[in-house]
Amino acid sequence: MININNVSKDFERSVVLKDVSLHVNQGSIYGLLGSNGAGKTTLLKIATGILQQDHGEVVVNEQVIFENPHIKNNVVFIPDVLYFFSQYTVIQMAKFYEDIYSNWNAERFAKLQQLFGLDVNKKIQRFSKGMQRQVAFWLALSAMPDVLVLDEPFDGLDAVIRQKIKNLIIQDVADREMTVIISSHNLREVEDICDHIGILHQGSLILEKDLDDLKSDIHKVQIAFKDGLPTELFNHLDVLHKDQRGSVLLCIIRGKDQDIAKHISQYKPVVYDLLPLTLEEIFIYEMGGVGYAIENVLV
C-alpha cells in the first residue's frame, strides 16, 4: 500500500532523513516511533506528498504521491498542530472538505456528529484543544480515506476521547481496510493499536517489526542448575542478555519457545521458567547498543 524507498531529505545542510525505507500493508496500523527531532513529522509529510524528498521515492497504491491528486484524494493527514481556516465553523469546513475530497460521505459526517456531540455551527477555533482534535478526526474520517496519517494524534486528549478515537480508527481499518500511520514519541500510547512498529532515530529507521512476531519471538528465561552452568548450554541459542542472580540465571533469548525449551531441558535444569516480555523490555534488549535512543520512546 505505502512504499517508502530510500528516502533522504536535507534541510539547510543538516540531514533530516537518510535513506529511509518503510513499507506499510493495506489495512495495517503502523506506529512510527522516535524521540523529538528524529524526523517523524518530516517523514509523514513526505509520505503524504506535502514535502518532496531529495532522494528516493514514495509510492502509494502503486503511484508516486507527490503532486498526484488522484492518490492524495484518498490520503488524509492530521498534523500534530491542527490547522483550520480562521473563522470557519465545522459545517463550513465540512463543505470545504466535501468540495475537495470526492469520497466525502455526508451520512458518515452526520453519524459522527452524534458520536462526538459537537455543535456544527460553532467556529472551530472557539473549541477547546481536545474538541478541535475531535473535529479533525470527524472531518478526516468523513472524507473516507484509504490512508490516514496521524502525527502525534493523542497529544492532549483525555483517556475517554483517546479510546473513542482509537475505536473509530480500528473500526475503519476493520470495515474498509483503511491503512493508518501513527507517529508517536511514546510506545505505550500506541502499542495497543498498532500491528507494526518502526523506530526512527536521527533520521534513520533503525528498526521495523511486526508486533506479533516480536512478542512470540523473544523470551525471558530463568534457569538454575545444581552443578553450575553447563559450558555448551548457549551454543545453539541466540542470547541477547544474561544476568546471574545467585544461582539463578536470567537470560533473554530469541527463538521459538518450543525450541528453547527442548534445548535447555537436555541439561536438566533445577529451575526452568519461560516468561513473556513486555514490549518495553523487548525493545531494550533488541536494541542493545542504540538502546539509549529507544528508552526515550518507551517512557
Binding site: 509529510k45 503524504t48 506528498g49 506535502i50 503532486e67 491528486p69 488522484h70 492518490i71 492524495k72 484524494n73 490520503v75 488524509v76 493527514f77 498534523p79 498542530v81 491542527l82 490547522y83 475537495i100 475530497y101
Partner: peptide
C-alpha cells in the same frame, strides 16, 4: 505560514 502550507498542500489539488 507553516500550518496552512501543510494543510493546503496535503489536499488533493495540484499546486
Amino acid at each position: 505560514v507553516k500550518g496552512s502550507t501543510d494543510f493546503i498542500h496535503s489536499l488533493p489539488i495540484k499546486r
